[in-house]
């Protein structure tokens, strides 16, 4: 464990907390893409499919359960309690292409042809693009509440911090996972435009509006 990885995981926890806080405090899921949330549920279930059968550490075990449970809880809240506040007319990204593309990528790029390795690789590729419906929705609206934007920002920071973590592990631990690294860089690049607008607007105390 190094500080980049710990910082990334904590940013991930913060993003989940911000999202659930926003939805429950406002009693509204407006501006949040349920498609992105469904994709994250799929990502965590496939990534952590061995959570009960392969022990890494108490830390990873607890975090995995939190990520699975919170993503399902978010989808459940959006689909049931706050269904009327959703924006299905602007949440129109075709996620079947993201899922299909991730299946193809996992079939080509995987560490071993076993079920667990294939679903692990699928989860990595799917995670790299899972934010797209949310960013697409943001673009269609043109502006968003700062709380929504903070959520996306914290989630982006999580994956961005994993990049120096991989550099660190490559140098000091002789550890290198090309699939996680390439997909992680793609994911961070997807956020780069968002990060730029976030810096230009939100950091300077303005409303998040796309130029």
């Amino acid at each position: 464990m190094n500080l980049f990885r710990l910082g990334g995981d904590l940013a991930h926890l913060v993003s989940i907390f911000i999202l659930l806080q926003k939805i429950t405090a406002n009693k509204s899921a407006a501006g949040i893409s349920i498609k992105t949330q469904i994709l994250y549920s799929i990502v965590y279930v496939t990534r952590y499919i061995d959570v009960f059968t392969k022990w890494i550490s108490l830390y990873t075990f607890v975090m995995k359960l939190i990520f699975i449970a919170s993503s399902f809880y978010t989808v459940w809240l959006m689909h049931n309690t706050y269904k009327s506040t959703q924006n299905p007319q602007i949440d129109t990204f075709k996620i079947r292409y993201l899922i299909g593309g991730s299946i193809i990528m996992a079939a080509i790029f995987n560490h071993k042809l076993t079920f667990n390795e294939l679903v692990w690789s699928f989860s990595i590729w799917l995670e790299s693009v899972a934010i797209l419906p949310q960013l697409f929705m943001l673009q269609r609206t043109g502006e968003a509440e700062n709380i929504t934007v903070h959520y996306i920002f914290a989630l982006g920071i999580y994956r961005a911090l994993y990049i120096p973590n991989w550099v660190y592990r490559w140098i000091f631990d002789q550890y290198f996972d090309y699939i996680a690294t390439v997909a992680g860089i793609i994911q961070t690049l997807i956020y780069s435009d968002f990060f730029y607008v976030y810096y230009q607007r939100v950091m300077k105390g303005k409303k998040f509006e796309l130029p």
């Binding site: 890494i56 550490s57 002789q174």
Partner: peptide, 10 residues
Amino acid sequence: DNSYLIHDEL
């Protein structure tokens, strides 16, 4: 070295 197969990251 197949240490990456352990998948110890989140």
